[in-house]
Amino acid sequence: MQCPKCRAPMHTYNRNGVQIEQCSGCRGIFLDYGELESLTRLESQWAQPAPPAPPAAPAAPAAPQAYPAAPQPPAWGAPHAGHYGHRRHKSFGHMLFSS
């Protein structure tokens, strides 16, 4: 689908079982009916110290901690999702050191 704001294509992501569409241009997020409630429900589960943090665990820890201090990339930037480790390969290392 197209972003209603900037007309760039929107991509679907699955966040903890909730389908959200994010714009590849302005990075705005579109939620279907009921999805906000689902996210709120999930958030309240996060707040509880419940040990069985199920399949949601990998994505979650980085976001809430990093968010307040993290500087924002420009609108055309890539979605930052805490995956720098695997990108740190040779090609990237080389790029940091060349014109």
Binding site: A8, W76, G77, A78, R87, H89, S91
Partner: peptide, 18 residues
């Protein structure tokens, strides 16, 4: 193109919209 190179081209593609 490798993954790093594609990420540069992808960023260029997104610039058109903004």
């Amino acid at each position: 193109l490798d993954e790093v190179e594609r990420s540069l081209v992808d960023a260029c593609a997104r610039m058109e919209a903004v």
